[in-house]
Design a protein around this nucleic acid. Structure first.
Length: 761
DNA sequence: ATCTCCTTGTTTTTT
DNA sequence: ACAAGGAGAT
C-alpha cells in the first residue's frame, strides 16, 4: 500500500494531476496541505521530477516551514532543494541576485510599515504638502493599491488625467519612489512589483526561472493580489504546470489588495485548467460545520460548494451574551478552566487586537498561561528597531532612515537642528545621510557637533571592519553594539521593569541571530536583516508549550484547535462598523468570510460570545448581537440570547443611526457635529446613567480583589525565584508590587508583568 | 538640547 | 485609553 492510498478520491485526483493548470477548491479542513505535500512527494518519487524544479508558495513562513517538514517526512531526501517560501521571501531571493538591472544594489533594505510612514512624512514635508489634506496613511494606501495592481508612478500620473487630487497623489507616489531608491530600499509591495518588472524587462532572467520552476504550487490562492497573480503567470508561462489551492470562502485580505477574482476566474485565465473540489471536512464536528455553512450561505458570488463531514455530531455550538466585555472575558477563561482541557488545545479569537487586553487580564487573574500572537509586532518594538537600525547602517550605508534613527540613540548631543543641517548638506550634494555624517567637517554651521558625529561614524566603520573577519558573528556584533555604543547603559537608566522586558526582547533577537548562524554556511548580515524583516507574528508562535492561544481571526487562518472561543460577536465590532457603513456590500461579505474562517478553526467545541457593553477607544459602546449569530438557526445553537437584555429601552437613546448607543465617557468635549451644539448635550446626558461614571474605578477595585496574594505572602517569580511581598501599591493601570526576593534582593514590578505566583507555606 | 504638556489620531485585519 | 508627535518652556 502506498502513501497515496490514504487519500480520498478527490484528493488523489489532485495529487495525480501533475501536468497543466489545476485549481483545487479546498474547503476548510478538507486536507489541502495533505494534498500539496503528497503532490510534491508524488512529483519527486513517482514522476522523478528533480526537487530543484519545484516551487511551493505559502502565505506565512510558518506554513512554509511546516510544509517543508511534512514533505521531508514523506520523501526520503532532496526535500531541502525544493523552494518552499512566501511570495515575499521568494521575491527577495530573486531580487538579491538580479536587482542591479533595476538600478538598485544587492544589499537593499526592506522597509516595514513604520519605515514607510516615516519616509512618507519626509516626502510630504519635502513637497510642502499640507499633512491635514494629504495624510500619510491614506497616501501609502493609494500607493500600495497601485503597486498591488502593478501601476507605476508614471502610469498613475497618466491615469490621473485632469483630476487635481489624483495628480497630487501621483506626485507624492513619484517622490516616494525616488526616495526609496535613493535609500536603496524597497517596501513590501515593491518586492513583488519589482520582481515582475525584472521578469518583464529581462526575458533571459525570466527564462532561467521558468526553466528552474517547472512545477509551481500556490497555497491560499484566494489571498493573492494582481501583482502576485502576474508573477505566477509569468513563471508558469512556459510549462504551465501550475497548481493553485484555495477557498474563495476564506478570502479575507481584500484590504491588503487580495483579488478574489484570481480564484473565481482561474479557469478563464488558464484555459484548459482542471478544477477539483474538496468538500469533505476532516476537522470539525457536524454541529460546528452546520453553523459555518449557515453563515457562509449568506454570501453572494461564491463558488458553489457544500462542506460535509463524516465526523460525529458533537456538542451544539454555544452562544452567550454578557453584560459587559469584562464578564465576557472572565466567562471565557473560567470555561477554559472548567473544561479541564489542555491549555494548548484552546484558542480565543477576536476581531481586533485591542480586544486581547481584557482576555489577557483575566488569564493573569486566573493563572491561565497564554501566548499572544500579534499585537505590537516584535520587530516593531522600539528597542528592536534601534538595534536593527544599527545593523542596517552597518550593512547598508545608504539607508537614511536607519542612520537618522540611531544618530542620537543613545543620546550623543546631536539634536534636530544639527541633523537638519546634515540633511540639507546631504541633499545638496546628493550624499546619503551616512556619507554626509562621514563628511561632518564639511557641513556648514555644525561646529563642535561635527566631532560627535565623526565619533559615531568611526564606531560604525569599526564594526564594519570587524565584520570582514571570518570569525566575527552577527550575534557578537549585536552584543558589541549594545555595549560599545552605550545603548544598554541608556536602557538601564529607564527603570527596572522597562529595562527587563526590553532586554528580554533584545535577547530574543540575539537568539534569532544565533540560530540564523546555525542555519547558514556563511551568515551574511544583509540576509539576516531581510529574514527578520519578513517574519510575521504567527511565524514566531511557539506551540510547544502548554498555553492558551490568543489571536486575531486573521492570524488564525490555517490553524486548528479542539476548543475555540470566538469573542466580541457584536454588530459594529464584528462585522466592523467600517464594513457595515461601507457603500460596498462586498465589505460585509469579507467579514462574513472571516467569521466562517473563525468557526471552522474549531474541531470539537466552539463558543461564541458577545458583550452588551464594551469600552472602545475610550468610550462605552452598546451593541446588539452580531448579525452573523442571527444567521445561524436557533436549533443549531445552545444560546442564552433570548434572555431579557440589561437595558431593553436603550434604543430610545439611539438617535445616531448607528447600531450602538454612544457615550463620551471622558476627555474631549468635541461636538458630535451632525447634531449641532444643542443636541450634543442631549446625547451625552441621556446616555450617562447607563455608562456608570466610575466605571474605570470600579474596574480597578475588581482587579484588586483578584490578586491572589497580599502583603506578607510568599510568592515566586520565574526569574527571581521566591520572596516575600513587602508592598502592593495601586499604580493606576496596574499594581506595583515590591518583593524581597531570597536571592535577587528587593525588586519593584508591575503585577501583570511579573506574573507572581502565591507560594503555599 | 531636552523636557513637558497638549493635541491628535487611532482601531480592522498584515506580508 | 493610549500613544505619538508637535509646540513651547527650561
Amino acid at each position: 500500500m502506498s502513501i497515496y492510498d490514504t487519500l480520498n478520491p478527490m484528493q488523489k485526483e489532485a495529487v495525480l494531476h501533475t501536468d497543466g493548470p489545476l485549481l483545487v477548491l479546498a474547503g476548510a479542513g478538507s486536507g489541502k496541505t495533505r494534498v500539496l505535500t503528497h503532490r510534491i512527494a508524488y512529483l519527486i518519487e513517482e514522476k522523478s521530477i528533480n526537487p530543484w524544479n519545484i516551487l511551493a508558495i505559502t502565505f506565512t513562513n510558518k506554513a512554509a516551514g511546516e510544509m517543508r517538514e511534512r514533505v521531508d517526512r514523506l520523501v526520503g531526501f532532496g526535500a531541502d532543494s525544493i523552494w518552499v517560501s512566501t511570495f515575499h521571501s521568494s521575491c527577495v531571493r530573486i531580487l538579491r541576485r538580479h536587482i542591479e538591472s533595476l538600478g538598485y544594489t544587492t544589499n537593499f533594505t526592506i522597509y516595514d510599515s513604520d519605515d514607510q510612514k516615516t519616509l512618507m512624512r519626509h516626502v510630504l514635508k519635502g513637497l510642502d504638502m499640507d499633512p491635514k489634506i494629504y495624510k500619510d496613511r491614506a497616501m501609502l494606501g493609494f500607493i500600495s493599491t497601485a503597486k498591488n495592481d502593478l501601476v507605476t508612478a508614471q502610469e498613475f500620473e497618466l491615469n490621473a488625467g485632469g483630476d487635481f487630487r489624483q495628480k497630487k497623489v501621483a506626485q507624492i507616489y513619484k517622490e516616494y519612489q525616488s526616495q526609496l531608491k535613493k535609500n536603496n530600499a524597497l517596501d513590501f509591495d515593491d518586492l513583488i512589483m519589482k520582481t515582475v518588472q525584472l521578469f518583464q524587462n529581462n526575458p533571459e532572467i525570466l527564462d532561467y526561472y521558468q526553466e528552474r520552476f517547472k512545477y509551481i504550487m500556490v497555497d491560499e490562492y484566494q489571498d493573492t493580489n494582481t501583482a502576485q497573480f502576474k508573477l505566477i503567470s509569468l513563471l508558469a508561462g512556459k510549462y504551465r504546470n501550475l497548481c493553485v489551492v484555495g477557498d474563495d470562502d476564506q478570502s479575507i485580505y481584500k484590504f491588503r489588495g487580495a483579488n478574489i477574482e484570481n480564484i473565481l476566474n482561474f479557469e478563464k485565465a488558464c484555459p484548459g485548467a482542471k478544477v477539483i473540489k474538496l468538500e469533505q471536512n476532516y476537522r470539525s464536528s457536524q454541529s460546528i460545520l452546520n453553523a459555518a455553512n449557515e453563515v457562509i450561505r449568506h454570501n453572494r458570488g461564491r463558488k458553489d460548494k457544500t462542506l460535509w463531514t463524516a465526523n460525529e455530531e458533537g456538542p451544539l455550538v454555544q452562544f452567550k451574551q454578557f453584560d459587559n466585555a469584562s464578564e465576557e472575558a472572565d466567562a471565557i477563561v473560567r470555561d477554559i478552566l472548567n473544561s479541564s482541557s489542555d491549555y494548548q488545545d484552546c484558542a480565543v479569537l477576536y476581531r481586533t487586537n485591542a480586544q486581547s487586553r481584557l482576555i489577557e487580564e483575566k488569564c493573569l487573574q486566573h493563572n491561565v498561561p497564554y501566548r499572544m500572537v500579534g499585537g505590537v509586532n516584535f520587530y516593531q518594538r522600539k528597542e528592536i528597531k534601534d538595534v536593527l537600525s544599527y545593523l542596517k547602517t552597518i550593512a547598508n550605508a545608504q539607508d537614511d532612515l536607519a542612520s537618522i534613527r540611531i544618530i542620537n540613540v543613545p543620546k550623543r548631543g546631536i539634536g534636530a537642528t544639527s541633523l537638519g543641517k546634515v540633511q540639507a548638506f546631504a541633499s545638496e550634494h546628493g550624499f546619503s545621510i551616512y556619507d554626509a555624517f562621514c563628511r561632518a567637517k564639511a557641513v556648514p554651521g555644525l561646529g563642535k557637533t561635527a566631532e560627535k558625529v565623526l565619533k559615531f561614524t568611526e564606531q560604525i566603520e569599526d564594526f564594519r571592519g570587524r565584520l570582514e573577519e571570518e570569525t566575527y558573528s552577527i550575534h557578537e556584533l549585536i552584543e558589541d553594539v549594545l555595549d560599545e555604543t552605550g545603548y544598554q547603559k541608556e536602557l538601564e537608566a529607564e527603570g527596572e521593569i522597562e529595562y527587563q522586558t526590553r532586554l528580554e526582547n533584545i535577547e530574543e533577537l540575539i537568539n534569532k541571530a544565533v540560530s540564523f548562524e546555525g542555519e547558514h554556511e556563511q551568515p551574511n548580515l544583509s540576509e539576516f536583516l531581510e529574514e527578520v524583516a519578513l517574519v510575521a507574528d504567527v511565524d514566531r508562535m511557539d506551540d510547544s508549550e502548554n498555553r492558551v492561544t490568543l489571536m486575531t481571526l486573521h492570524s488564525a487562518k490555517g490553524l486548528e484547535f479542539p476548543r475555540v472561543y470566538l469573542s466580541g460577536m457584536e454588530d459594529g465590532l464584528f462585522p466592523s462598523m467600517m464594513s457595515i457603513s461601507s457603500d460596498d456590500k462586498e465589505d460585509v461579505e469579507e467579514e462574513r468570510r472571516l467569521c466562517y474562517v473563525g468557526i471552522t478553526r474549531a474541531q470539537n467545541f466552539l463558543m461564541m460570545t458577545a458583550a452588551r457593553q464594551r469600552m472602545v477607544n475610550g468610550e462605552t459602546r452598546y451593541s446588539r448581537v452580531s448579525r452573523f449569530i442571527d444567521e445561524i438557526p436557533d436549533v443549531l445553537l445552545d444560546s442564552n440570547k433570548l434572555e431579557p437584555r440589561l437595558s431593553a429601552s436603550r434604543t430610545d437613546y439611539d438617535v445616531s443611526g448607528l447600531p450602538w448607543g454612544k457615550t463620551k465617557s471622558s476627555g474631549r468635549t468635541a461636538g458630535v457635529s451632525s447634531f449641532g451644539p444643542g443636541n450634543n448635550s442631549y446625547a451625552s446626558k441621556t446616555a450617562t446613567p447607563v455608562s456608570t461614571p466610575g466605571f474605570g474605578k470600579a474596574f480597578t477595585v475588581e482587579k484588586s480583589a483578584s490578586l491572589n496574594y497580599k502583603e506578607g505572602d510568599r510568592v515566586s517569580h520565574v526569574k527571581f525565584g521566591e520572596g516575600e511581598v513587602l508592598e502592593i501599591k495601586d499604580g493606576g493601570r496596574d499594581f506595583e508590587v515590591t518583593v524581597q526576593f531570597d536571592q535577587a534582593g528587593i525588586k519593584k514590578m508591575f503585577a501583570s508583568f511579573a506574573k507572581l505566583k502565591l507560594v503555599r507555606v
